[in-house]
Design a binder for these strands. Structure first.
Length: 460
RNA sequence: GGUCCGGUGGCAGAGUGGUCAUGCGGAGGCCUGCAAAGCCUUUUACGUCGGUUCGAUUCCGGCCCGGACCUCCA
């Protein structure tokens, strides 16, 4: 099946042709670990998780690298503010990130390198840039010489002149050109630093991704992804550094970027207080990470997405329908199925909303299936399509029962009340039966009487 | 100022030059002791003004509205 992806560099959908059809390599910019991941950090993780799943179906071998940036001035500032050791802050934040992303059903990348473990590689690239005449040392800093690269700005579509003209930030006096950016900067004794040919210092923002992508994927690899906000300056500068250090190589062949996120109809911002972290959403919706994942995949990855809590509630209800049908079919073995419809949707630039509509079609087929054979086929179709999206793979009973909340009586208490109610139903005491059901309903428990006299339940 | 993206039915959200998105919600029905779930039927769209065309929501242009980026926010 032909995979088409939108390439930021060419600004259109193109056919994906791997450099090596036996081994696809891609890199996604990971988090800078100084704070909880917010929902905007989660979008690229979930989107590129789907890409990884798809690529693994299409190609024999895939290497997916996502870094952790654990040296950065925001980390230093946060550590100082908290009075916490830098290492402790980055470790703690990275661990939390892993937990949160796992809750969203994102599989870990194949390699997750850390910036602080690749200082040597960064220094090597910077040295090569100086040797090539693309970087210079000034006032303890090493800067990339932007005018030395004629096609700088291709990815973002900004010319150097535009960037200089639009600059909002004061230009540091040691820069030869206002567009030049820092590769290496000096560190004071209280800040993290490493010995280098230019004295004790620390890396600039962009160099770590160049160093780590090249180390694990080679000087030329297939796909580089990230959020749209990284196009400039981060990815633009990554390209500049990487290609000028290795003029013979191409760096990333395709660039993919996910769209922005809003929250509750407004631009996410800390001042508006609508900056949802994944952690707090999981606290409010315990065990419902998959609903958050569904919200993120219900909108095409390049479209702007307005993230709302109501959206999570809706997505949870949608997943209930899927798991309700799967619970009904629990005794039926799923037939092997390849989900060509979901595959086709995803192969067209990750059209996850269309793919999800095919999941709904499979759900309809499962609900309408009259025979076990039809049920097995529909269930197989649903699960196979869901696997590509990382959806509907949980145990239906576990999902539907959810996590017990403080307000309810717990699973055993619920079972006991249901038994009481069924006794009442048998003796036609519907008043008592309905009272028990109403009480449970108020506690968020929904009952469903089956034709054979049994009753199943779920947490709303 | 420059560059770029988007505006689809009550809501969410795909897609297409001329029969259907899909889901939620609403209405009616079947089923049920009543519900719940499921099934069936049904309801309403393509910002605006022009152009191209036999025909445009889909292509082109203007305008309006919203958003993003222009040196370190995914």
């Amino acid at each position: 099946m032909t995979l088409r992806i939108h390439d930021t560099l060419r600004r259109k959908k193109v056919v994906f042709e791997p450099l090596d059809p036996d081994h696809v390599r891609f890199y996604v910019c990971g988090p800078t670990v100084y704070d909880f991941a917010h929902i905007g950090n989660a979008r690229p993780v979930v989107v590129f998780d789907v890409l990884a799943r798809l690529l693994r179906h299409l190609y024999p071998r895939v290497t997916y690298v996502r870094n952790i940036t654990d040296v950065e001035d925001k980390i230093n500032d946060r550590a100082k503010q908290l009075g916490e050791d830098i290492r402790s802050l980055t470790e703690r934040t990275a661990r939390q990130f892993h937990e949160d992303m796992a809750a969203l059903g994102a599989l870990p990348p194949d390699i997750e390198p850390r910036a602080t473990e690749h200082i040597t590689e960064m220094i090597a690239i910077i040295s090569a840039l100086i040797a090539n005449g693309h970087a210079y040392e000034a006032d303890g800093h090493v800067l990339f010489d932007v005018p030395s690269m004629p096609d700088y700005g291709r990815l973002s579509g900004h010319s150097r002149e535009e960037l200089v003209a639009g600059a909002r930030v004061e230009v540091a006096p040691y820069k030869q050109d206002p567009a030049d950016f820092v590769l290496w900067k000096p560190s004071t004794p209280d800040l993290p630093g490493w010995e280098s040919p230019w004295g004790r210092g620390r890396p600039g923002w962009h160099i770590e991704c160049s160093a780590m992508s090249i180390k694990y994927l080679g000087r030329t690899f297939d796909i580089h992804g990230g959020g749209q906000d990284l196009i400039f300056p981060h990815h633009e500068n990554e390209i500049a550094q990487s290609r000028c250090a290795h003029p013979d190589a191409g760096f990333a062949k395709y660039w993919m970027h996910n769209g922005y996120l809003m929250a509750e109809g407004e631009k996410m911002s800390k001042s508006l207080g609508n900056f949802y972290t994944v952690h707090e959403l999981l606290e409010e919706f315990p065990g419902r990470g998959e609903a958050i994942r569904l919200v993120l995949l219900q909108t095409h990855y390049r479209q702007p997405l307005d993230f709302t809590k109501d959206g999570i509630v809706q997505a949870k209800a949608t997943l209930d329908r899927f798991y309700l049908a799967l619970r009904e079919a629990a005794g039926i073995a799923a037939a092997a199925f390849e989900a060509p419809d979901v595959m086709a949707a995803l192969s067209d630039d990750l059209n996850t909303p269309l793919a999800i509509s095919h999941l709904h079609e499979a759900l309809g087929a499962l609900n309408k299936a009259a025979t076990d054979k039809e049920k097995a086929a529909a269930k197989g179709r649903l699960l196979a399509g869901g696997a590509l999206l990382g959806l509907v793979q949980q145990d239906p009973e576990a999902w539907l029962r959810g996590a017990a909340e403080a307000s309810d009586t717990g699973d055993a208490g619920i079972e006991s009340l249901i038994a009481q109610r069924n006794e009442a139903r048998k003796s036609k005491d519907f008043e008592t039966a309905d009272r028990i059901r109403d009480d449970l309903s108020k506690a968020g428990i929904v009952l469903e009487d089956k034709p054979d006299g049994t009753t199943v339940w779920r947490r709303a």
